[in-house]
Design a protein around this nucleic acid. Structure first.
Lengths: 337, 337
DNA sequence: ACAAGCTATGTAACTAGTTACATATGGCGG
DNA sequence: CCGCCATATGTAACTAGTTACATAGCTTGT
């Protein structure tokens, strides 16, 4: 049992003992090797190798007060818009030598609060959340821990946390106004779930103010299948709309698919517009007109903001990214009266 | 300066002092509250609240020897197959109360080795890598830290690390044999980059053993655009193939798009088959025949395996998941001779 | 009434590093 | 040849928790 092979992991003291130096010297070999004599360094490194010494991350963290980890809470990873956002976020964070812990919430605010606690428990130095609708527990946690936290995918200068995002209402409005400018007035709107999805809610709000008398609304889960289903319902409407506004490209993809399946011509018979501008959206049939959400730039900006906050204590100011209309083949001016 | 408001974060000792109890009691209130008298608990909790005390994750980790973090190294997040895999992984890991740190490598083995070191530096207790091609540094790191590590998206019972994945060569073979069974022999193969992508390599290997005289190969980046481009090249071939085998659905999506754009009938003129079975693949035109990769089950199994390894020291055995052919609309028996 | 036993709490030694400060050694200038 | 200074190293006190063990105080049984 005393066989060193079976002993637990070696620590600094073990290395120091074997190398016949003090713990300080070993620590120096690790952190400021230039201040150690070559000969000593060699002896210490030999001991390190022999004992297979690996410094404990926790012990280092306790001294530096740093974990170099930030947590992101997103509804899901299994959706291109979040995956792309997190990809950009991770890439930039790693430039700041920060690691990204991803926690998914399924859009459930209480799961979010729970997972936020988990992130604090592992020592996350910063938090990134999606949207502005959260449980009070989340805010209490952030306040109690004095945790740098930003809300993304949403813009609201008055929000408790700095928001780094785009104008969801504006994106909805841009899509609607484009359809209106093409002469459409009978418009079906297909949107995602309204429970705890403030982005969808905001996009819907963006549609207000215009004459909604000729608009009908269809709720669907964010999947191609549910987009198909929504299209199906729309097609069976007595008063068939001339345009379909989807608040998410995934839904638009399903809608386009179903319209094609039922041989409804897009954009001749019905125009379709989305919001997101996913990688695949340029390659649907017909290519989808949509509102581009700049998630990559948002990811980079979020990484920079949270990093500066953590390193320099500089709370970032909110940041608004423009969304822009990408006109492709799925929309056209309404013909006839 | 002595104003407590400006003092640094409170620690256990501060709480103990304020509550007039010992540090042990405060620790007990936190970890085994039942063993503390109600009255004491109340006093301690009041002190905790007053001082806004939040226990240090690092200090806990140093004692428990646990960080409850595992790291995953993937080529990219911005691809549905990895995003879906990580989604499944994260979901299951969180059931085991483990958090997931994601690091992307861009398919670069030296970036991977570097980021693996970062993961160790933040105290990751386990590592999940993609495929079996890695820098020696990565293996040394794993060996030196005695780190539980599994390789996924690949199956090889003889590999140094336990592999939890599917048979890439088999997936390629299944796709090819299906095309052959339909009477196709002039087949164009569109594949991703061969540099440091052993999955692609293995899929290609799966095509060997059959008569490759009538097969032509096209390398493309894993994007719809590059799939389009590849299709373009294939269509300009003198001896146009009757089937296109794409080693990834993303490429197949691009190929289908370009074929449609150029008004080549699928599957009448050309059959197209993919590998992956992405969410969107059932909704292309025509719906894509493909080989389903069970990434969700693989994610769950990986989470369970790494968790057991970490908790109980039980090195998992390798695990093979079946891939299966999903026949949809993009393939058909070759007509004429 | 007193010992036994249980509950609640405290003391101090751990976990594994970093680092301020003290000290030893050696080279070089005066 | 001595003192000064720089370089290299050591000592011990930190970081912030957990926990084994000791003990105080109260209840209960005989």
């Amino acid at each position: 049992m005393d066989n060193p092979k079976y002993r637990k992991r070696a620590n600094l003291r073990d290395v120091a003992k074997l190398a016949n130096v003090s713990v300080a010297t070993v620590s120096r070999v690790l952190n400021s090797p230039d201040s150690v004599a070559e000969k000593t360094k060699a002896v210490v490194n030999a001991a390190i190798t022999e004992l297979r010494f690996v410094p404990s991350a926790a012990a280092r963290a306790i001294n530096s007060g740093r974990s170099r980890v930030v947590g992101a809470l997103v509804p899901t990873l299994d959706h291109a818009i979040f995956a792309r956002y997190l990809a950009a976020l991770e890439q930039k964070l790693s430039e700041y030598r920060l690691s990204l812990v991803v926690a998914t919430t399924n859009g459930d605010a209480s799961v979010e609060a729970l997972k936020a606690q988990t992130l604090v428990d592992i020592g996350a130095e910063g938090l990134i959340v999606s949207g502005i609708t959260h449980e009070p527990e989340l805010f209490e946690l952030i306040e109690r821990c004095q945790l740098p936290a930003v809300a993304t995918s949403y813009f609201d200068p008055d929000f408790l946390l700095p928001t780094i995002g785009y104008d969801n209402a504006g994106a909805g409005r841009i899509a609607l106004e484009y359809l209106l400018s093409l002469g459409h007035s009978a418009i079906a709107v297909v949107h995602g779930s309204l429970t705890s999805n403030d982005r969808t809610l905001a996009r819907l709000e963006g549609l207000e103010g215009h004459d909604t008398a000729r608009m009908s609304f269809f709720e669907a889960d964010l999947s191609i299948e549910d987009g198909c289903e929504a299209a199906n319902k729309i097609l069976s409407l007595e008063d068939r709309p001339t345009a379909i506004l989807c608040l998410s490209d995934v839904l638009a993809t399903g809608v386009l698919y179903e319209l094609k399946r039922q041989e409804v011509a897009v954009p001749d018979d019905i125009s379709v517009i989305g919001i997101d501008d996913l990688p695949g959206s340029a390659h649907t049939f017909p290519a989808l007109t949509t509102v581009h959400l700049p998630v990559v730039r948002m990811g980079h900006a979020t990484a920079t903001a949270i990093s500066e906050w953590i390193e320099n204590g500089k709370r970032p100011s909110e940041r608004l990214f423009e969304t822009d209309l990408v006109i492709r083949e799925s929309t056209r001016a309404r013909t006839g009266i």
